[in-house]
Design a protein around this nucleic acid. Structure first.
Lengths: 269, 269
DNA sequence: GAGTGGTCTAGACCACTCC
DNA sequence: GAGTGGTCTAGACCACTCC
């Protein structure tokens, strides 16, 4: 419980002394060129526990004092580690209650990755209609973006999402077959709520960040039909790659967004 | 030098005791419903100095130790205040050198607000060609977004931006006439570098954040001509409102982006 | 060597939650 | 009242920059 687990950095004073980690305790050590502060090492250890599922999404993690005892560092050092994890949305702090593992089963998480907002009214989550779910071999471009080999097994999903009954998004997804083994159309259809919640609960894969590229395109005949709009209507085309722990790409999503009554919202800081 | 300036919060222990601010020094004070921690008050004071121009963009601000002495708080409290200012890109810390006021005259600042990236090659800043610069009365929609009254004086700018000689962006800007009094076409044309650098240096107005709404549209005849593309080509339409200190809206910018060889890039965290 | 921000500790007390 | 995260202090030492 209070031993320091395998440590990614070799210059950990906590690990090397195995005890109270005065910053100067191991002062003889060379000012290593790969210096990594103690709180970064603690952060990595906590991240490992998150990734391994020691603490599951939605659960309370040990208190700062408890973690400080476990890792033999001060509470301040644990705080600084957790500060960064909270800034990255991996955990959520609640004063008086504790620190919780973030989860996609939660209202506030639903719009972290979906930035399409209604022009009028409050945002709400769309309903999904699945058009196609199948296993296939990864085309070259998909394989490249998901860090797979061309021809590796992937799961392909096509769906339409509607707000208030108005079809607004046509989306194609590719998922690595190995990671999402056992994902079926039935499971997708019966599951209510955001897909990332399903991935998190049933496949132990939590999306933690994504990159997105956006263009303008004209609707093709098939997509226009699915969205109930004239062909050649301009649409936003988003290509999004989502990553889980360790910067591993685990989803490619290509979406077409109708911006008749919605817009893509962004904050620039 | 070491007196505490007017304070936005009434429960400042630093202000009320006028001296060493032990968190418990004024312990008799009610657990006020508008509690604001000391570091937030210090942050507000530093922000005031930034806004007033006491420290100008690009300049070094006083060291943490000096600020701690000035405000009669510990260095740790100043650090926490500056941490947040750095996270908001208002200042930049450089270890061993000090903390500098952020400026738009700087490579890294150029792409904070312009998210259009080339599909191939490294990002670089576009050249501008000004189509029109005039003073006018604010239309209702512009007035609303800039927090002006309909008919108030605004400066209108229309320009085309090109990457490697390829026209890619058509942009219309509206600026409050009062804030940007004296801005002329000549000054814009002769100024090399990003417009926000000019605004910062010549008008004392620094853009610190923006909100953006993006849609897909079809190019009209006039815009198609400016961008050397066929009419009805799909384009990204961005509407951006930029804010300076105090969340004051000081620019409305409507841009049309060709996404033939570029894409809008976003990171979702 | 002097000055800067960066890390780390130990200890005190606060606001908030739950009982 | 006990437990949690949140704030604040004072002091030590570190990495880095500039001279």
């Amino acid at each position: 419980m209070n031993s320091v687990p395998p440590n990614p950095n070799s210059n950990s004073t906590a690990a090397s002394t195995g005890g109270v980690a005065g910053a100067s305790a191991g002062a003889a050590a060379a000012p290593s060129p790969t210096f990594s502060p103690l709180y970064q090492q603690i952060k990595a250890l906590i991240t490992q526990s998150l990734q391994s599922g020691e603490w599951k999404p939605g659960e309370l993690i040990p208190s700062e004092v408890e973690l400080a005892n476990r890792f033999k560092v001060s509470q301040g050092t644990v705080r600084k580690a957790i500060d960064e994890l909270a800034a990255e949305n991996l955990v959520m702090r609640k004063q008086g209650k504790g620190t919780f593992v973030s989860t996609h089963h939660e209202a506030r998480a639903h719009f972290r990755f979906l930035r399409l907002m209604p022009d009028e009214g409050v945002p709400h989550y769309p309903e999904s209609k699945f058009i196609e779910v199948k296993r296939m071999r990864a085309p070259a471009d998909v394989a490249r973006l998901l860090d797979l080999k061309s021809g590796d097994a992937v799961i392909f999903i096509k769906r339409v999402q509607s707000f208030d009954g108005v079809p607004t998004i046509v989306e194609e997804l590719w998922l690595p077959g190995v990671t999402f083994k056992g994902l079926t159309a039935e499971r997708l259809v019966e599951y209510k709520g955001p897909m990332y919640g399903l991935f998190e609960s049933e496949f132990g894969t939590r999306m933690i960040r994504a990159t997105e590229k956006i263009r303008a395109v004209c609707a093709g005949a098939e997509d226009a039909q699915l969205l109930h709009i004239p062909a050649d209507t301009p649409l936003l085309a988003s290509e999004r790659v989502s990553f889980t722990y360790g910067d591993k790409a685990v989803e490619l999503r290509r979406g077409l967004y109708s911006t008749e009554r919605h817009h893509y919202h962004n904050e620039l800081n």
